[in-house]
Nucleic acid binder design. Sequence first.
DNA 1: ATTCCTGCAAACGATTTGCATACTC
DNA 2: GAGTATGCAAATCGTTTGCAGGAAT
Lengths: 141, 141
Amino acid sequence: MNRKYMQKFKDIGLKLTPQRLAILGFLEGNPDHPSAEDIYKAVSVQFPTMSLATVYKTLDALREKGYIIELTIDPAKKRFDPFKKMHHHLICTLCKRVKDIHADFMLDIPEQVRGDFRITGNHIEFYGVCPVCRNGHERRI
Amino acid sequence: MNRKYMQKFKDIGLKLTPQRLAILGFLEGNPDHPSAEDIYKAVSVQFPTMSLATVYKTLDALREKGYIIELTIDPAKKRFDPFKKMHHHLICTLCKRVKDIHADFMLDIPEQVRGDFRITGNHIEFYGVCPVCRNGHERRI
DNA sequence: ATTCCTGCAAACGATTTGCATACTC
DNA sequence: GAGTATGCAAATCGTTTGCAGGAAT
């Protein structure tokens, strides 16, 4: 497992530090689309000296290399998605939980609407209410 | 024209002030999806004593009443859309210009993906490069 | 040895809040 | 007159930056 990361880091030209390993480990396969603060809290358990600035800098480096995606689904803060494959999101409007949608949608913009834009991609946000909130149990925000 | 706003404000239970009238006037039919700062600059021409806080408070009131929509397309700041009708956005990844897409897309999430979410709506962001940026002329950001 | 990373503190930009004054209803 | 909006300044929150010491290559 560590071996996998080490190779990955070498490949993308980043130095491998314990902090980065922890951040990457927390992100890997994480379906929660955590914020920088979320990540900071999680890795601080292992690394009490960890700085929030380091989290931001690492996330920025990873984003630059295309390893993670920065989401703009939350007006209040950035959230990060480790999934490299193109996908969409289903967002609970109450608790802000985000679920990945790995489905393909063929979308064509009518020519006269598209105008002279060159379309390079799309991202769909589905809105809804998750099972937990519907039952009125928990509420994360 | 003022009459129209006055009625609208009465309807939604907000007091009509010159500042709010100016903000609403600037927003009405505006296709640029301005930020609070943009709005502030624009209305400051008429109202030099206008405060940015007032802009924010007004926008918040309008959003609460469902009169405008807050967009999360820009990680750096909120942008506002006066369009009440459901629509999508075509975003230039270089200059961040946003164009409205008034087209309907029939999107169905596969049952096993949707799970127990109750879907209430969706919003599609198309990404691309606008004609201006493609020609390398202007760049807004 | 060189280059890059960490972590602290300070800086920053967007947004929010408290409050006294002024306005709309 | 009651209730709300304005506008200022200060506070807050997420994020970024500068920099000195430390670690990875």
